[in-house]
């Protein structure tokens, strides 16, 4: 494992992850040196207040980035509905409307993968509770590119399928209990 300070932290979650993310945001310090990017499986055509729900927890604005917005540290981003979220070499977000992956758009795999391509060892991927296989491939790729992976302890998950699938292919990942998540993240 490397000891470089993370520049980007991508958190991927699905069913059962929202309460964990709220807790993560509630315990977030006022300043942190990386961009925190939340990618969550969400419905696509109905109005969503998820950004406001998370904003309330973190006491800071949660931004649903527009295409080609700059990625800025000390900010919390939420992948918008109905797009895949990608990262570009010039540290901007890029949105993509290609096919759903694992029935999801946004999907976790492309976000992890493109973060790995751009940030390499300065990328951290966190995979939370969920009921399908999304995120495994992307997290494996992120680790292969020198990044670090944290996976929610399946025993603590409402829906453990996603973490279990990831643990099968990302042997270097660290298993973390929700209560330890913030401590672990900020000691990287």
């Amino acid at each position: 494992m490397n000891s470089l300070a993370p520049e980007i932290v991508v958190v991927g979650g699905s069913a059962g992850s929202v309460s964990i993310i709220i807790q993560l945001l509630e315990q977030l310090p006022e300043t942190f040196p990386f961009a925190l990017v939340l990618v969550i499986h969400r419905q696509k055509s109905v109005p969503s207040e998820m950004d406001k729900v998370f904003g309330f927890s973190s006491k800071m604005r949660v931004i649903e980035p527009n295409d080609k917005d700059f990625v800025v540290p000390n900010r919390v981003y939420l992948a918008p509905q109905n797009y895949h979220l990608l990262l570009e070499q010039d540290r901007t977000f890029s949105l993509d409307y290609s096919e759903a992956i694992h029935y999801s758009r946004p999907a976790l795999d492309p976000a992890f993968e493109s973060a790995a391509d751009v940030y390499g060892p300065r990328a951290v991927g966190i995979l939370l509770s969920g009921a399908n296989q999304d995120g495994s491939q992307g997290l494996a790729y992120l680790v292969q590119r020198g990044g670090r992976a944290l996976i929610q302890d399946p025993q603590s998950c409402e829906f453990p399928a996603m973490p279990l699938a990831a643990l099968q292919v990302v042997s270097q990942a660290e298993v973390v209990k929700p209560a330890d998540l913030n401590n672990r993240l900020f000691s990287l």
Binding site: H84, L86, L87, E88, Q89, S94, D96, S98, P110, E113, S114, D117, V118
Partner: peptide
């Protein structure tokens, strides 16, 4: 073209 998505498409 936006490089991240173009690369994904080529892989696809």
């Amino acid at each position: 073209y936006s490089r991240a998505s173009f690369t994904r498409r080529v892989k696809h």
